[in-house]
């Protein structure tokens, strides 16, 4: 990292300031994108990855500004940028959708978080969630609640908005072998049993059972 600053990026390839290569960074973003798309609840934010990708994109775009029009390489670079930008915005959009859907629970979880724990929301998302909460509340009050009898004029958002259903089924692929995953029975006359998840195998099971494995990156939702 020390000598990376000596020249001002004359070569596009000179951005390996992190331990991660740009290609690995993009792979991380795609992982986060698919996990976020398929998990029923909001996952931990990956603002580090998002920021690094943004940096890569702006850097590349700045370089492209200097290239003259009609350059064959530039058009290929632009196509790649567009693809990455699509993944990035689709990822952020699916997070916003979940925040809008579950905002009281998201904020509640953020509030009860221990100091030092990784934050669920990025600062921008947190601001968005708070604002969304306030706006929804004001709207409900203005449109309906103030016309209700006095004893019915309060609303508990936590009860009014359904929680994410962690018992949903998800499809997943195993990246690191896991042993003794407990599968809870569907009905009372079945018994619980354990399965081993082999590396590379694919499964269909409840999100609740494997939720911790998603956040450690041991399994990938598909």
């Amino acid at each position: 990292m020390s000598d990376g600053l000596s020249e001002d990026g004359s070569d596009i390839n000179q951005e390996d300031e992190d331990v991660m290569t740009p290609a690995e960074l993009i792979a991380k973003l795609e992982e986060a994108w698919l996990n976020e798309k398929f998990s029923p609840e909001l996952l931990e934010n990956k603002s580090e990855v998002v920021e690094c990708v943004m940096e890569q994109l702006t850097h590349m775009e700045a370089n492209l500004q200097r290239v003259k029009k009609g350059d064959a390489k530039a058009s290929i670079h632009r196509m790649e940028i567009d693809r990455i930008r699509y993944v990035l915005s689709s990822y952020l959009r699916s997070r916003l959708q979940k925040i809008e859907k579950y905002f009281p629970h998201v904020l509640e979880k953020e509030k009860s978080r221990e100091m030092g724990d990784a934050s669920l929301l990025s600062p921008e998302e947190f601001a968005f969630a708070k604002e969304y909460y306030a706006n929804t509340e004001t709207y409900l009050k203005a449109m309906a609640l103030k016309r209700m009898p006095p004893n019915l004029q309060t609303i508990d958002m936590l009860k009014a908005v359904p929680e994410p259903c962690l018992d949903s089924f998800v499809f997943l692929r195993v990246k690191e072998r896991q042993e003794n995953i407990l599968v809870e029975p569907e009905t009372d006359d079945q018994r619980e049993y354990v399965v081993d998840l082999e590396e590379g195998s694919q499964h269909l099971m409840r999100y609740r059972t494997i939720a911790p494995l998603v956040s450690t990156g041991a399994v990938q939702l598909i």
């Binding site: 569907e186 399965v195 694919q202 499964h203 099971m205 409840r206 598909i222």
Partner: peptide
């Protein structure tokens, strides 16, 4: 059979 777990090896993303 009201299963709670299924193994889906060899299935592709499009099929899922």
């Amino acid at each position: 059979q009201q299963e709670a777990h299924a193994k889906l090896d060899n299935l592709t993303l499009m099929e899922i």
